[in-house]
C-alpha cells in the first residue's frame, strides 16, 4: 500500500506527458502518411503554440482566445512552411525534404529566440491550481485538461479520417497517390492539409503543456524528439499507434524518474526506441514501414 500512492502519482504525470507526446506523434504520422517524410520542424510548432498563446494571453487575458488564436496562427505557420520551403523543391526526394525540415526547425527556433528571447514564460492553468484528491494521489486540473483535450482531439481526428470525404481522400493518397490522382484528388492539396493539421496538433500540445512546464524558445527540440520516438514506438502513420506510443513513453519516463532517478528520464525514450526498432520495427500497433 505504501508503494501504491507514488505509483499512482507517477502514472498520472506519465499519462499527462504521454498525452502531449501522443499529440506530437500524431503530427509526425499525418505528415509521414501524406509525404513519406519525417517533419523535424514538428517540435517547433509545439514551442510556437505555447509562446503564441502566452503572448496573446498577455495582450488579451482570455484563455479560450489565447488557445484558439495560437492554434490558428501556428496552423498558418505550418501551411506557409510547406508552401515556401517544401513545395518549390525541384527534385523532391524524401531525404532532401527531410533535411529542409531540419533546417526549418533551426530557423523557426532562431526567429522565436529573436521574438521572445531566452526567458521562460508562464501561462496560467486553464482552471486553477487546486489539486483534486484521487485516493492517495492528487491530480491537478491541468492534468485533466491535457487528458480530456487530447482524447477529444484524437476522437475528432479519427472521425475526420473515417467519416469525411476529405479525410478519406487523405487516406487514399497515403495508400496510393497515383490512384488518388486518377480519381481526381489533388495530392498537393492533401500534403498541404497534412502540414496544417499537424501544426494545429503540435500547437495544441504546446498550449496544453505550457501551464505545467513554462514556455521557452528551445522547448520544441526535446518535445519533438519525444513525439518522434513515440510515433516510431507505436507505429509511424497509425493513429492508434501514435496514441499508444505516446502513453507508453510518458508512463515509462515517469516510472524511471520516480523509481530510479530523474537523470534517466530522457534516456528512457531512446532506450524504448532502440528496443522497438530491434524487436518490432513496425511499432507496437504496426503502422507502415
Amino acid at each position: 500500500m505504501e508503494n501504491f500512492a507514488p505509483l499512482l502519482q507517477y502514472l498520472i504525470s506519465g499519462l499527462t506527458n504521454g498525452a502531449i507526446y501522443a499529440l506530437i506523434a500524431l503530427g509526425f504520422g499525418i505528415i509521414y502518411n501524406a509525404t513519406t517524410i519525417i517533419n523535424f520542424a514538428q517540435g517547433e510548432m509545439v514551442m510556437l503554440g505555447a509562446l503564441c498563446a502566452i503572448s496573446i494571453y498577455h495582450v488579451a487575458p482570455s484563455l479560450p482566445l489565447a488557445f484558439a488564436g495560437a492554434v490558428v496562427l501556428v496552423t498558418c505557420v505550418g501551411l506557409v512552411f510547406e508552401r515556401l520551403a517544401l513545395r518549390p523543391v525541384k527534385d523532391p526526394t524524401p531525404i532532401a525534404l527531410i533535411i529542409i525540415t531540419v533546417g526549418g526547425a533551426v530557423l523557426i527556433k532562431g526567429v522565436a529566440m529573436l521574438i521572445w528571447g531566452k526567458e521562460a514564460y508562464a501561462l496560467p492553468p486553464f482552471s486553477g491550481n487546486d489539486p483534486i484528491h484521487l485516493g492517495p494521489a492528487t491530480i491537478l486540473p491541468q492534468n485533466l485538461w491535457v487528458l480530456g483535450i487530447t482524447a477529444i482531439s484524437v476522437l475528432a481526428l479519427e472521425a475526420f479520417f473515417r467519416l469525411t470525404l476529405v479525410g478519406k481522400a487523405m487516406r487514399a493518397c497515403a495508400y496510393n497517390t497515383r490512384a488518388a490522382r486518377l480519381v481526381g484528388i489533388a495530392a498537393g492539396r492533401m500534403v498541404q492539409l497534412s502540414f496544417g493539421l499537424s501544426a494545429a496538433l503540435g500547437a495544441g500540445a504546446g498550449i496544453l503543456i505550457a501551464p505545467l512546464t513554462l514556455g521557452v524558445y528551445d522547448m520544441g527540440t526535446m518535445l519533438g524528439l519525444k513525439g518522434f520516438s513515440a510515433a516510431i514506438i507505436g507505429g509511424l502513420g497509425s493513429l492508434a499507434g501514435g496514441v499508444l506510443g505516446g502513453l507508453v513513453l510518458g508512463v515509462a519516463e515517469a516510472l524511471a524518474t520516480g523509481f530510479i532517478s530523474s537523470g534517466y528520464r530522457d534516456a528512457v525514450a531512446f532506450l524504448l526506441l532502440l528496443l522497438v526498432l530491434f524487436l518490432r520495427p513496425q511499432g507496437l500497433v504496426g503502422g507502415r514501414k
Binding site: 478519406k168 481522400a169 495508400y175 490512384a179 486518377l182 480519381v183 481526381g184
Partner: peptide, 25 residues
C-alpha cells in the same frame, strides 16, 4: 477516367469508400 494496370485500389479501405472516392470531384 482510367482503370489503371493492376487495379490500384485503395486496398485497406472498404468497397464503399473506394466507390465514393471515385466520385470525389
Amino acid at each position: 477516367s482510367q482503370v489503371p494496370e493492376g487495379r490500384q485500389l485503395f486496398a485497406p479501405m472498404t468497397v464503399a469508400e473506394n466507390l465514393e472516392l471515385g466520385a470525389y470531384r
